[in-house]
Design a protein around this nucleic acid. Structure first.
Lengths: 188, 188
DNA sequence: GCAATCCTTTGACAATTGTCAAAAAATTAG
DNA sequence: CTAATTTTTTGACAATTGTCAAAGGATTGC
């Protein structure tokens, strides 16, 4: 077991030596600068990313404004998940907010690996399940919650993001405006 | 291929005869009345359900009010997904809104099937992926959207629900109050 | 290091949505 | 079928949040 990416994955589910090597063979490690765009809008995203170190933001434009959909930091998965899974174009853009080290795996190579290695297919299922839990948790945090509750939830669950992500992006991540978040911050 | 449940699943991914039979052997078909509680709050949910016909609502209490988290109709999966996946207790309750015919499969039997049938593990991955897409779609529909936009989104995407689900439940499903939804309906 | 740019804060005000209460309508149970 | 219960609608008002504009800070690039 050689790299941080595969080490992190095996914490979800064990992998045979063969599977680890096959996965390592199709993963590429990228050292990228802040601002680099991992996925552009309007295309089918062919890659999924694992952030060894750094920070990415997934966002889209709604009525000319950027809406932050997701934030991924060290040890997490990043990408335009909807497009990657559905194999359809999507308007989401994925951009690095910090200089980052990421691992990239293509959809096609994953498909091949899944077909040949049951343990990787299982790992894939568990990773998607984990993603679903995370998304549901995020959904719950916004559902029927006030702007203050949303901010407090973020503070409780992902405090590091508050330091690392510009306020405007955090605001739309929470489904509120920058002005409202700025005022909440001033009060609390 | 004998039942509607397995037929629906094979539309996601093909299953060998052996897998189909193994799955059929652990699935139970239930004919239940309106109001029946499939999953109670505070416990680990051991079953996942497929609704052959009918309608279920997943909800929880927040400050004494019911918050509708999910609605599942004919041909869809129902249950307390968070608890089922995480194997942790959850406050969500799943209740039938109509007399329904559902198929139930236990977590334990699914685990066993996954371990022995790669094609079922793949199907599981694809089902969870599909669930993730649905949840993301629902999230997007509420993110940075007004009450009117949310209602119009529901009207566009799941018009049947508006006929079948009481207004109060639809309102909290959309993250708004009953009064607001009632007024939107009166205007549009 | 400094100018230019971008981001955040603050203010004034408007729009949206929530709250509480009561009436009207619909549904349920006997 | 009718009474009881629950749900939906409506009204009056309050609270929250959004919008626009401008000032103040911070960051970036040369």
């Amino acid at each position: 077991m050689q790299n941080s990416f595969i080490t992190a994955l095996t914490h979800f589910s064990p992998l045979s030596e063969a599977s680890q090597q096959a996965l390592a063979a199709v993963s590429r490690r990228l050292v990228l600068e802040k601002g680099h765009v991992l996925v552009n809008a309007g295309m089918v995203s062919d890659y999924i990313y694992f952030i060894e170190q750094g920070l990415s933001r997934t966002y889209y434009l709604k009525e000319g404004r950027e809406v932050t959909d997701w934030l991924s930091a060290d040890g997490e998965i990043a990408g335009s998940i909807v497009s990657f899974i559905s194999r359809q174009p999507d308007q989401r853009i994925v951009q690095l907010l910090e200089p980052s080290v990421v691992w990239a795996v293509s959809y096609g190579s994953l498909e091949t690996l899944y077909a040949h290695h049951h343990d990787l297919e299982r790992l894939g299922r568990l990773l998607v399940s984990h993603g679903l839990l995370q998304l549901q948790h995020r959904f719950d945090a916004l559902h029927m919650a006030s702007a203050l509750e949303r901010y407090q939830g973020l503070l409780a669950n992902r405090p590091a993001l508050i330091q690392r992500v510009p306020l405007g992006m955090l605001a739309s991540y929470l489904g509120i405006t920058s002005e409202t978040l700025s005022r909440i911050r001033a009060q609390v």
